[in-house]
Nucleic acid binder design. Sequence first.
DNA 1: GCCTACATTAGACTAAGTCCAAGTCAAGAT
DNA 2: ATCTTGACTTGGACTTAGTCTAATGTAGGC
Lengths: 138, 138
Amino acid sequence: MSDLLERLRDRGWRLTAQRRVVAEVLDGDHVHYTADEVHARAAERLPEIARATVYNTLSELVAIGEVLEVSTDGRAKRYDPNAHRTHQHLVCSRCGTIRDVRPAADPLSALPESERYGFAVSEASVIYRGLCPSCATA
Amino acid sequence: MSDLLERLRDRGWRLTAQRRVVAEVLDGDHVHYTADEVHARAAERLPEIARATVYNTLSELVAIGEVLEVSTDGRAKRYDPNAHRTHQHLVCSRCGTIRDVRPAADPLSALPESERYGFAVSEASVIYRGLCPSCATA
DNA sequence: GCCTACATTAGACTAAGTCCAAGTCAAGAT
DNA sequence: ATCTTGACTTGGACTTAGTCTAATGTAGGC
């Protein structure tokens, strides 16, 4: 994650303790925390960190493309640090577990010109839903 | 939309004035209102209708599969009466306009078995994003 | 026309997120 | 090493979207 911190410094970010712990929480594979979960985990290391700071930092990370926002259920947004390897999401309809997945074909290519209504389409995000192994057997 | 009202009566729905106006508001193509928009439009015809009633009715329509919930921006959910013709959504990244679109291939088929992590995947929802014609020229 | 189970209402409540004015501090300049 | 300053953080009030509840109203079977 020091890669990320270095990239941030290169962008002129002031490197504060708060930003550091938020960046550290968002490290790993298949990480999809809500802002409140990020705040709770950050507060374990830096108890006085404010919710507003977590929201600010997450928004900045999203704005510069280091973190993705994922909205799987119309409730709290989730934050996905896996921003440099394009992928989609597979969500369990029962328990909400999320996995990063890579479809075989670019989803954009499935949308024919005749279905684009003159839009300059630049991105497709897919949510696959189904039962995860533990929910299927339970 | 009397089709819908008939299907609802067949299911044993009590047909109230409130449910009727909500169903009438949700009529047409490329309709994707938020709950508040549905409430505002319903209130034009039935001024005393309560927000809670709109939420209740929308949830019921979703539960029985007559209306789809779409979450395009992590803000208010939108309600889509086009539930019997499977489709995906194309959203303008600037103004938020939504169109129903039909990809050439079933998006599910693009997810190889090796990327399913043992899930019983049953559904894929796709949001295509880009600039709509008016936002592209503005 | 009555009855009653189901539907509606207003308003309090919750969850998720934004905004703001005041205080703090990282890092460049000295 | 300290100063300075503009960027960052804070806590709390505020907003938006949605849920819940107890009291009231009413559709539709009789």
